[in-house]
Design a binder for these strands. Sequence first.
DNA 1: TATGTAGCGATGGTCATACCAATCGCTGCG
DNA 2: CGCAGCGATTGGTATGACCATCGCTACATA
Lengths: 253, 253
Amino acid sequence: MESVIPYRSDMKATFQPIRSPRISEEVIAQIKSAILSGQYQPGDKLPSERELIEQFGVGRGVIREALRALEATGFVTMRQGPNGGAFLKELNFNHLTGGFVDLYLAGKLTIPELNQVRKLVEPEVARLAAARVNDAYREQLRQALAGERGQFCDGDDRMQGMTRVHFILAEMCGNYLLHAIVNAMIKLTHEIVATVEPQEHYALHGAGEHDAVAEAVIAGQPQRAAEAMRAHLDQFCQKLLNMDRRYRGQATG
Amino acid sequence: MESVIPYRSDMKATFQPIRSPRISEEVIAQIKSAILSGQYQPGDKLPSERELIEQFGVGRGVIREALRALEATGFVTMRQGPNGGAFLKELNFNHLTGGFVDLYLAGKLTIPELNQVRKLVEPEVARLAAARVNDAYREQLRQALAGERGQFCDGDDRMQGMTRVHFILAEMCGNYLLHAIVNAMIKLTHEIVATVEPQEHYALHGAGEHDAVAEAVIAGQPQRAAEAMRAHLDQFCQKLLNMDRRYRGQATG
DNA sequence: TATGTAGCGATGGTCATACCAATCGCTGCG
DNA sequence: CGCAGCGATTGGTATGACCATCGCTACATA
């Protein structure tokens, strides 16, 4: 390591830092900084590992650990071969959904808790969606409703179809953070069902249960949309709870 | 690689998998599985890197990348020296707060969006807290209120004091997921302020602004607590918005 | 006896090199 | 014109060496 490493010139009066004795942290910080300052755009390719080794003047292990951490936190994806390398991802919240599932599997998160949050957030999302509806979204919602009545090639595909309306509403609400939270909750629900009831999930959710919500949103009626969503969730959450009880009853996990 | 690796015997009818051509993913999956199945408790120490190399029959780089990923996702922390190694952390949501800050810095998240979520969630949290209050929590709240009037050795310390009430209420609400979301929102607010206004944050939040909320909770009045929280957030979010406007006005970032 | 200190050894952190594996593009043969 | 195969580029893995850190022990010293 030589010259480089300009970092945190805004040090405070107190002392604290004693920077992490890990070079990969420095590498991560510099790459992150370059990304967040706009020097790289989503889709861009970082220099190859060999190039980074030269530019940073460190060993390959350090570079790889840094890239692995950046991958784990959703900044990049790695591809192999020529034209391969580390590519910047569109920054979003998807990478933390897995963390929620882990929490559930570790028993730190229960279905009632998840239900409570969904019942708090999603009616509000439906309300916002109804207030911002336009023709493009109306069309998407109609297609989603139609899709619920279609054929599915497997259970996973079916679940995709049944959560479609929720995802559309989340996107419609116009708040990226809210969108992200709802997405995480839905995917968490999705993954929990897929984990504990990989076969019989069809019993959980029938076609048409989103009709009332979607129609209220299409009609641009916020209050009615919120109430319809609340009613839908009351019904669905109860089923989910029953499923969870069966699961925890038969297999301790 | 030989014998080992029992993984996912519950395969479905469809095909999809074609698992990632990366051995470290397998290592991660096995360690995670061991953790989630309860073979390790928080505080326990995983085998040393050299031992893992033998047990898994892989190179050291693989093990290190796996550990680095587990560290990035909040499963373990690493310590050096004898009695060092990879130690299991109590699983929680803290590790994703950093991700939110990144989103903000990348411009994918705005203060109004953050404010909207806080105004939706925190009044409900205050309501739940008021319904579940007990003497221990009453005492904590009183201490937090008193703490707001005390002396602070630096700005960071001060901000800790000012967010104390919010954290207590989040814990009181009895929903771990809600608790986690609120924690993330508050820490995000905290870090944003510390990032864009490292010096003058004292103007944002005066002592006593939580009095009404805390008193309503202590009195066990859910409705009043929710309204007080809403009023507090209306006031605070406006200040935050002004700060953000000043920041984005002077420095494009 | 108590205490300070030097050094051993276990562990994570780093480096260098070599080779394997995947993949894209080019080249040349059919 | 199309396809097979080679080669180059890039990530993935293995190995071995060495450094940095730090707890413990044993020895030296007061």
